[in-house]
Design a binder for these strands. Structure first.
Lengths: 354, 354
DNA sequence: CAAAAAAATACAACCGATTGCGTCATTATA
DNA sequence: TATAATGACGCAATCGGTTGTATTTTTTTG
């Protein structure tokens, strides 16, 4: 039993395929009687439109391509989840590809998406990509492109990100408010803009609160859990060890927390900690890890709606920069003064502009 | 600047599109000289095959469809990650859809995948699906179908799952070995086979170790975190409260852990806990949560390779049942006797059969 | 009731590859 | 040298819809 086509329906009703096609898409110039008849037969034959054929002729696949470093980090999977929801609501499907943070895979993923003729692409740049020419080419070739979180300033490219600077600033300021005076920073790959901004926000907060910015308190790494542990080992050997840590990633923060505990340090009394990302587990550890929430849901939804807009207004579209204001979720790991007991105090807000 | 087609290449070289097509696909009956010339022009024109057109003609899209309840649970996102890896290695792309555990969305997702003419489908059944006819139809219509984790026994359908019974049995037996005698079970929706099997494994372990199976110790829920908390509240009011919990989900286990701590109970001394799923956070909480690992990586890889095989051996394929043996990851939450200090003791193995 | 206007449907090209088969040019064989 | 056997490529149909335009049918109008 082959799949039914519009030709089968047309033959059965002794009308032409074009009429069937129009009837199915509710074209105004087809009579109600014909439409009903067509739908009836279509149902009976279990007809399902062949989107491949439709895409070939119409030039629209109704597919969105997504390139992320990996799907199994809760931040990315949450973004994906929300992209998919928005896409489906607009009749689009989503193709997911992973770069494993490698430039080569990133390139070949883009290639595959281009071959599949997706209508638009949403991506977050691989950690080890040195060169963004593949993205720039993409954008220049007219494919709507939206970068999120790990972005780069490219022509014809929209961006959805959080204000990393501000997130870092607020996190650091929060630690200062809690009475911390020697605050260390676990920084990420400075190649990525997000980690640069976080470092800058951290430094600015120190300066504006009249604290010195001691370079020996900044520890650079790949922000994995182990990096947090080794970072602490180093820092604790300083003549004047830190009384707080602001980590650019929750994983590093957790590693730091584990190592500190192993050394008998109390958190937050001896060392307060703030992470970044607000991963699921932050609320499960003890004490709860204060963290900067990246608004993955909004990010996914905005990335999707932006690329959809860009698709529909094809030529005349001005790339959009959306910068969300992250939200500091305060938990036990940083709360020296017991101001609130519910364990969640937050600064928030979000802005969309230029 | 329009996208280049094989016609453009053909025109430039004064040969026919069919020759170009064959040259690009390295057809043996095209001369090396022509192939080189074609590739050179293709590169220069930045040609990229239009897979939509190729798919229409050849009847193969080289796309796999995936239906999961959600992408933002680490188990599913890990499976997805591995599916994608295997798929890409074989020249396939992956379309992801989410059912949100709803039957209606699950149906419409399948519909979308069918319209897109994916070559095969990998799915994990939605929690609230009462009726699996949409999957059976799918399989009957000849689309290669592989179900994983949350499976159902359907015709023409391959299955990749873990031995939930055994996982539960080992988990429970482990608790018994640790000296626990009143072991409660936080069970999931019995509609789903996986939760039934876990309950059965739990009961079997009790029986075979000469322990009574007390129905009041089994608490049914949707296995969310809150269900763990409320479950504990109930159980602790029993005249003879449990000294151990085997939860069908890590989330419930965490909830239980939190509630127990809030009541001043020590873990594992007063109450030992074992979860199921081995989510990332299990190693971050304190004490570490002993859990049954579901081998998400293997599951993803096997699901993908199975559906790929099924695609290539289309007609003659006998559905395969793959049952993986889960692995109990022992951590602090269940370790009363301090046998090993590394915090990880495990039973393991994996079998492929039937 | 004939002509004009509107409504409904038919015709046919097209999207960009793939592929079975036919054809011509070479080379090998007798 | 005539003929068979290869090799290399061209021809044209095809996949299943979509869509601009032509045509027929129906309704409206004078």
């Amino acid at each position: 039993m082959q799949k039914a086509t519009i030709y089968d329906i047309a033959a059965e009703l002794k009308i032409t395929p074009s009429t069937v096609s129009r009837a199915l898409s509710d074209h105004p110039r087809i009579s109600g009687r014909t439409k009903r008849a067509v739908r009836e037969v279509a149902d009976r034959l279990n007809y399902r439109q062949n989107s491949v054929a439709a895409a070939l002729r119409s030039g629209k696949t109704n597919m969105l391509g997504v390139v992320v470093p990996t799907t199994d980090r809760s931040f990315f999977s949450s973004v994906i989840r929300n992209i998919e929801q928005v896409a489906v609501a607009s009749g689009y499907n989503v193709m997911i590809t992973q770069s494993n943070d490698e430039e080569e895979l990133e390139r070949s993923n883009i290639d595959a998406l281009l071959k599949a003729r997706v209508d638009g692409i949403i991506a977050s740049i691989a950690k080890w990509s040195n060169d963004y020419s593949h993205f720039q080419q993409l954008a220049d070739s007219g494919v709507p492109l939206v970068l999120f979180d790990r972005v780069a300033e490219l022509n014809r490219t929209s961006i959805v990100r959080i204000d990393d600077y501000r997130g870092a600033y607020e996190a650091t300021a929060h630690l200062i408010e809690q009475g911390c005076r020697r605050i260390a920073h676990f920084a990420g790959q400075q190649k990525l803009d997000i980690y640069q901004k976080r470092l800058e926000g951290y430094q600015a907060a120190l300066r504006e609160h009249g604290l010195p910015t001691d370079p020996s308190l900044v520890h650079y790494s790949n922000v994995k859990l182990e990096d947090g542990r080794s970072g602490i080992k180093q820092l604790m050997q300083l003549p004047d060890p830190p009384d707080a840590i602001f980590a650019a990633s929750d994983y590093t923060a957790i590693g730091a927390m584990q190592e500190l505990k192993a050394n008998g340090k109390r958190i937050p009394e001896d060392v307060a900690i703030v992470g970044f990302m607000n991963e699921t587990f932050t609320s499960f550890v003890e004490p709860g890890l204060t963290s900067v929430d990246q608004l993955s849901e909004n990010m996914g939804k905005l990335a999707a709606s932006t690329v959809l807009e860009q698709i529909s207004s094809s030529r005349t579209f001005a790339p959009r920069k959306v910068i969300l204001t992250p939200k500091l979720i305060v938990r036990g790991s940083s709360q020296k003064s017991q101001i609130s007991t519910n364990g969640q105090k937050s600064i928030s807000g979000s802005s969309v502009g230029e």
